[in-house]
C-alpha cells in the first residue's frame, strides 16, 4: 500500500547505508596513527572507490527511470535507495578526502558533489511536502477543472459586462484581458500576481494601467459602485459581478498556487541534473589526475 520513499519497505536502505557508514568508519579509523588519514592510503583508495561507485550508481537513476521494461526492482525502491545512499555519500566522500580541502580539482569535485546532494535534499523536501499541499489546493479537482471553471466565469463576466455602463465595462473587460497566470520560469516559481486593469479617468477619459493583484482593484471598484447605482437593475448586475469576481479571485489564487508548487517540484531537477553532469566530469578528471600523478 502507499508508503513514501523514506518509509519504503521499512526503511530498508537506511539500514543499508548505516551499515555502509559503519564499514567506512572502520576503514577510516584503521589508518595508521603515524600518518594523518589521507586519500592516498589504501584505506583512502578503498573509500574513494566506494564513493566513486556510489556516484556512478546514483547517476544511473536517470537511466533506470527511463528503462520502463526493467525488472531490476521498482523505481520507488531505486529512488528510496538513491536518497539514503546519496546522503551517505556525503560522509563517505568526506572520510575519503580526510577533510583535506584546497583550491584544486579534487575540492571542486567535493564542492560539486555537496551541491548535488544539497539540491537533492531540496528536491526531497519538495517531494515529501508539496504533493500534500497541492492536493489541498486542488481540493479533489484537477487543474483542468479549475481552468474550465475560470473559463465559465469569464464567459459569465463578459455577458454581465454588456449590461453595465461603459466605464465599468472597460474596467471589467480589461481585468479579464490583463489577468496574468503562469508566465516564465521565475514568474511561475514566485507565484506573484501581476495582473493589471485599465482604469479610465473620470475627467480626461484617458485610461491608466494599474495593478490588480488578487483581483482586488476590480473588486474594490465594483464594491464601491454597488451603493452608488441608481437603477435597481444596475445594482443587481454589479452585485452579481462582484460575486463572480470573488469566485474568480479564489480560482485564480488556487491555479497560481498549483502552478507554483508544480514548478518547484520540477525546478530543483534543473539544478540537480546539470550539477550531476558537472560532478561526473570533475570525477573523471579527479580520477585520471590522481592516477597520473601517483
Amino acid at each position: 500500500m502507499h508508503q513514501n520513499i523514506l518509509q519504503y519497505r521499512g526503511r530498508r536502505y537506511l539500514w543499508v547505508v548505516l551499515a555502509l557508514l559503519i564499514l567506512s568508519l572502520i576503514i577510516y579509523l584503521s589508518q595508521p596513527s603515524d600518518l594523518p588519514p589521507n586519500g592516498g592510503s589504501w584505506q583512502g583508495y578503498t573509500l574513494g572507490g566506494i564513493a566513486a561507485a556510489l556516484i556512478v550508481w546514483l547517476a544511473l537513476l536517470g537511466y533506470r527511470k527511463r528503462s520502463f521494461r526493467s525488472r531490476l526492482g521498482t523505481l520507488q525502491g531505486w529512488t528510496s535507495a538513491h536518497v539514503y545512499l546519496g546522503s551517505g555519500l556525503l560522509i563517505i566522500a568526506s572520510l575519503h578526502c580526510a577533510f583535506q580541502f584546497g583550491f584544486n580539482i579534487h575540492t571542486l569535485l567535493y564542492v560539486l558533489m555537496t551541491a548535488v546532494i544539497l539540491s537533492g535534499f531540496l528536491g526531497l523536501f519538495f517531494y515529501l511536502s508539496y504533493p500534500r499541499r497541492l492536493a489541498r489546493v486542488r481540493s479533489g479537482r484537477r487543474r483542468t477543472d479549475w481552468l474550465t471553471e475560470l473559463n465559465e466565469i469569464d464567459d459569465r463576466i463578459h455577458k454581465l459586462a454588456q449590461r453595465c455602463n461603459a466605464r465599468t465595462r472597460k474596467i471589467v473587460e480589461s481585468a479579464l484581458d490583463r489577468t496574468h497566470l503562469g508566465g516564465g520560469a521565475i514568474a511561475q516559481l514566485r507565484g506573484v500576481d501581476r495582473s493589471l486593469v485599465l482604469r479610465p479617468d473620470r475627467e480626461t477619459s484617458e485610461s491608466k494601467l494599474i495593478g490588480n493583484p488578487e483581483q482586488e482593484t476590480v473588486i474594490e471598484h465594483l464594491a464601491s459602485a454597488v451603493p452608488k447605482a441608481t437603477k435597481s437593475d444596475e445594482a443587481q448586475v454589479l452585485q452579481e459581478l462582484l460575486n463572480v469576481f470573488g469566485r474568480r479571485r479564489t480560482v485564480l489564487s488556487r491555479l497560481r498556487q498549483d502552478i507554483r508548487l508544480q514548478a518547484w517540484m520540477k525546478a530543483w531537477l534543473y539544478a540537480h541534473v546539470p550539477l550531476t553532469v558537472a560532478m561526473l566530469s570533475a570525477l573523471v578528471v579527479h580520477v585520471i589526475s590522481v592516477f597520473l600523478y601517483w
Binding site: Q3, N4, I5, R69, T74, L75, Y127, P131
Partner: peptide, 26 residues
C-alpha cells in the same frame, strides 16, 4: 511484462498502485 504493470513500477514516489477491491479497506 514479467515485472507487472509498468506504470506502478515506474512511479518514483510510490504514489501509483494497482489493487483489487478486496484491498480497498487496507
Amino acid at each position: 511484462l514479467k515485472g507487472g504493470p509498468a506504470c506502478v513500477r515506474a512511479c518514483p514516489t510510490g504514489a501509483a498502485i494497482r489493487i483489487g477491491p478486496d484491498r480497498f479497506p487496507e
